[in-house]
Amino acid sequence: MYDAPKTAESTVSQNEIKFDCRDCQVWYGDTHAIKDVNIQIEDNTVTSFIGPSGCGKSTFLRCLNRMNDTIDVARVEGQFLLDGEDIYDRKVDPVQLRAKVGMVFQKPNPFPKSIYDNVAYGPKIHGMAKNKAELDEIVERALRRGAIWDEVKDRLDQPGTGLSGGQQQRLCIARAVATEPEVLLMDEPCSALDPIATALVEELIDELRTRYSVVIVTHSMQQAARVSQKTAFFHLGNLVEFGDTGEIFTNPNDPRTESYITGRIG
């Protein structure tokens, strides 16, 4: 079992609730992928989702910014309250929601555009820059936060698709933070990164926490323990256990959680 960092324990439980999800269900056609999930995601907190492959982590994450809308067969039920407002309400515009709740996808998906345009895409759409100089600044800051600036600063006009897998992953992180979302959903953002880049991305996540809420899916227990204050363990579409990261890793309630984090199932 892992020791959770001390800092993580001390800062929990006094934050406002950002996402309040109740009785959430997701079906893909006849497959029941998410079953009765209830979870509260706090502001200024890093929440990690862990669980065996195929248990529904990505599916649940995608519910939080309505990305499942783009899948024809997917059906979502339940209440997803963001700051007290149901995001699946008719009045809510998914486009605005997604500007507020950003996402880094499990598979890196840079646009077939230049590195610069990849990052500038969101800020341009949302009119965040008044002029070219401001846009340059936004792009540079985002790339620095994504820990990729040094590698690409001389080749900003080259296609983002020409980068290595790990570089693409960081480019996508930079692209997502460039729009300054309130909530950032990260689906295995470090899966292709070396330890140094991983450490830099974790630094970024910690920094983001001061202003936003971050949800991260990860297969690395160490990472979950290092960066998150809250951890949710999913298994076969159920949310088995949710609580303070330190608690989950040192003293899990459910035997399934214990076997997963000690490596017996999954």
């Binding site: 910014n65 990305m67 783009t70 998914p94 486009v95 605005q96 929601l97 997604r98 500007a99 507020k100 950003g102 996402m103 996808f105 598979k107 998906n109 840079p110 646009f111 077939p112 555009k113 895409y121 969101g122 759409i125 949302h126 996508c172 692209r175 997502a176 729009t179």
Partner: peptide, 24 residues
Amino acid sequence: AMRDGSYGLGATQSETIRQVVLPA
């Protein structure tokens, strides 16, 4: 995944088509 990337940044459908799908 290209479209998802664009929607995930808060782009509308026609923005996505104009700026991501058609150029690709």
